[in-house]
Design a binder for these strands. Structure first.
Lengths: 332, 332
DNA sequence: AAAGCATGAGAAAACGTTTGTTTTTATGCA
DNA sequence: TGCATAAAAACAAACGTTTTCTCATGCTTT
């Protein structure tokens, strides 16, 4: 492999000049004659020079490496997040290191290994509770010169003095409520989900603010599509209930209900309104299309990377709460 | 940050011994007394030593970095692949660098940057055609000491002398055909898809081998669910056609057809059989559940990483074609 | 008792950059 | 011409490891 030394020899200059010409970010006041620049660049190109990042990072005292910790869970969210981070990182040519796991031990290994790269940053999307052990690891990481941006958990992060990029589930729930209100729903049914209490809260507060009363038909743990469909059909008997407004809390439950109701001779999207949450891949392809809430996880990834980049380069960064988007389709 | 020098000073030994104790993979014949080992380890732990990877990689002549090139496309496949790679890499503590893009220029930048890390490996899942320009870049990468494992395109890769991990679309299509045959379908309808010709081939060959004739109802480009549903309903009039067997080529089209048919008073899964391909996230949640083909992209990721790891450590690795799995649900 | 041989530890030279300091060369001005 | 000054280039010391070679010690063997 070609090194600066060989280019220097071939071009008839010292290593120092060659470095100043070829370095990706040379220190200020590195003055090299334009003519020399061109010559050295030409020689480097001709010899097929590729800089040795390990050497550069060693000398510079660290690589601007960004570690990404993603939970090993299903659904499209981690994928979108990762994509956003990668797209933005590609623009900034940051090296990235990824780690999928769902355990605290995995998080610890990840943090320790990331420290080994010095001058690093971490984007963490932990699937587990932000508890004391996590706080301790985060503290250790930051104490060793690391910077961290968290995904979700904004309030908890703010308390711990951490920057976070969050997606506003409360507003998302409220958007669904608003849609069902606008469409004139008479009764408001919802499936509560322990995993995402904010969606539920946002939904219920909005319904209540309109002077109506949300009804929790079941917690998602006991979700049983047949039972719920039967319940809906019996409510459907009474015209004064229509249109029924159902917030399923998440797309899978909404799809189950819609597709089971489809054969029951009810007008979905008119007499029965159903909304999900998440805008998963196939949500647009059921009939009627599922009205749902799209979460900007790709944007979250991009923004998280930009914040981290700013922090690595010594600037300040602030937490951010991203607005989800209501996707209106035929089901509501 | 603590360095070997400081540990050496604190422990009362030379840097060399400390390195031999703490190095992640010390050269053979590095003999250190057990007592010394323990002492040095204790001191390192107490001082909170973290090895400097940049220095290690510089000295070792390269980092075993693995770059992953993923197409910037929708769907769950890249996500599953990435997850598999990450999980396996976590076990082997490989640093990973990711790059999402869909352009050849992006691929070129990716290849060049990966060379900069020396001693590297690449897992590439290119979304574009494997053409001459790609072959040239791959050649340049391997010429510079890189190793590459490709995802998909096994035949093309074999011709170019590259290792690939492929998923057997032909067999997947055949599995669908077999299922429809077993269920006694009288007519076999399929939607052809330019993107995945092998699925279609596998399906048709199997149907023909059974002495039946597959009918292509439309290319996916002109897919129109309403038109197809109308066509199915008219075929449905004639009892001698039943059960109809439909291979939609991909999940979205299958879901559209199923959910539109649901309100038409036909027995899906009995008189009309429908299968998709891909087992996307919501496929299990429509009613009836979508019979489809699950692609082992997570396994592909794991295996690709293991092969690459072997190659980096000087062993041989061979291409592999993974079998997809037919997921039988209510729709067929 | 002398020589041979493991074994454990240290000295020092790298690896390929970056960068502060010093030296050389070119330029401007009296 | 001579001197001050600025610009361009060279020198050399790092950065934190790994690893070859050398050396000292204690043990076994003739």
């Amino acid at each position: 492999m070609i090194t600066l030394r060989e280019i220097a020899a071939a071009a008839g200059y010292s290593i120092a000049v060659v470095s100043r010409v070829l370095s990706p970010c040379p220190h200020e006041g590195a003055r090299v004659a334009e003519k020399t620049r061109e010559h050295i660049r030409a020689v480097a190109l001709q010899l097929g020079y590729r800089p040795n990042r390990a050497a550069e990072f060693l000398k510079r005292g660290g690589s601007p490496v960004i570690g990404v910790y993603v939970p090993d869970s299903a659904g499209a969210q981690p994928g979108e997040l990762v994509k956003g981070i990668c797209l933005e990182a590609g623009l900034n040519s940051f090296p990235l290191a990824f780690f999928y796991d769902a355990t605290i031990d995995g998080f610890q290994r990840f943090i320790l290994e990331t420290i080994n790269f010095r001058n690093s940053g971490v984007i963490a999307f932990p699937a587990f509770q932000f508890d004391e052990r996590i706080a301790e690891l985060v503290g250790m990481y930051c104490g060793n010169g690391g910077r961290m941006v968290m995904i979700n958990n904004l309030e908890r992060c703010a308390a711990a003095g951490l920057v976070a990029v969050d997606v506003d589930d409360f507003s998302g729930g409220a958007m669904v409520a608003e849609r069902l209100l606008v469409r004139g729903s008479r009764r408001f049914l919802t499936i509560s989900n322990q995993m995402f209490p904010a969606r539920h809260e946002g939904f219920c507060r909005k319904i209540e603010a309109a002077g109506k009363k949300p009804e929790v038909i079941a917690p998602v743990k006991e979700f049983n599509a047949e039972r719920i469909v039967a319940m809906l059909l019996s409510m459907h008997q009474n015209k004064s209930n229509l249109p029924l407004g159902i917030f399923a809390g998440a797309d899978p439950e909404a799809v189950e209900i819609i597709t089971m109701l489809a054969k029951c001779n009810v007008k979905i999207g008119r007499d029965i309104l159903i909304a999900g949450y998440g805008d998963q891949y196939l949500a647009a392809h059921v009939h009627p299309g599922l009205t749902t809430v799209a979460q900007p996880f790709m944007t979250a990834g991009r923004n998280a990377l930009n914040k981290l980049s700013a922090m690595i380069y010594g600037k300040e960064a602030e937490s951010e709460k991203l607005m989800p988007e209501l996707i209106i389709r035929g089901s509501a």
